[in-house]
């Protein structure tokens, strides 16, 4: 039990600290990304994704971990679209919302309450959502789905992500000044 609390404190603290220090929690920055004007968050995200992807697949090949790809179902698309609309209205996602609460941004508290209500709404109507959106799914394993070896897909994905980072990097970071 103590171990779980310690893990929770360390992981959460580093995460919240990094988000704040990198400036990911800023409202103009999140909106700037969605307005396709400020790509710092995109570059931050794709750096993390590319590095972790190589790490996860290497650790998997070494037998240290087992990959756990999320299956594809209609909930991913519909839920993703609903989530995106919420993110646009709020100007932050759940992780940055918590870090923003720490930063003293009061409206994030209201967002937290709303998020909990949204989850409660799902829980109460779980039968409806399960039968309509998540009852049928296909495996999320991309190399299985495409029938291509993962060590061909991973480098291609890495090149693609790095190319996006490179293109995004040509834009200015600090959108705040011309918002």
């Amino acid at each position: 039990m103590i171990l779980k609390i310690i893990i929770g404190i360390i992981v959460g603290f580093i995460f919240g600290y990094t988000l704040q220090r990198t400036g990911i929690t800023k409202y103009p920055r999140v909106m700037g990304m969605l307005l396709l004007k400020d790509f710092k968050i995109l570059k931050f995200m794709l750096t993390a994704v590319t590095f972790s992807m190589i790490g996860f697949y290497t650790l998997d090949s070494m037998g240290i971990i087992e990959l756990n790809p999320k299956p594809l179902d209609w909930g991913k698309l519909v839920g993703g679209l609903i989530f995106g609309a919420g993110m646009g209205l709020l100007g932050y996602c759940p992780g940055t919302m918590l870090s923003r609460i720490g930063e003293g941004k009061k409206d994030a508290w209201v967002g937290l309450f709303g998020t909990v209500l949204g989850i409660l709404f799902f829980a109460v109507n779980v039968k409806f959502f399960k039968t309509h959106f998540t009852s049928k799914s296909i495996s999320g394993d991309i190399s299985e789905a495409l029938g291509i070896n993962q060590w061909i897909i991973v480098p291609i994905a890495a090149i693609l992500f790095i190319a996006i980072i490179y293109l995004a990097n040509k834009k200015v970071d600090d959108f705040k000044h011309n918002f």
């Binding site: 995200m45 909930g75 839920g79 989530f83 919420g86 967002g111 209500l117 949204g118 799902f122 959502f129």
Partner: peptide, 21 residues
């Protein structure tokens, strides 16, 4: 707006089984 946005965020996150993280 934030309350409504949060509602959508929470509902969407559980339906899509995950948020940005």
């Amino acid at each position: 707006i934030v309350l409504f946005g949060g509602f959508l965020l929470g509902l969407g996150a559980v339906l899509a089984s995950g948020c940005t993280t």
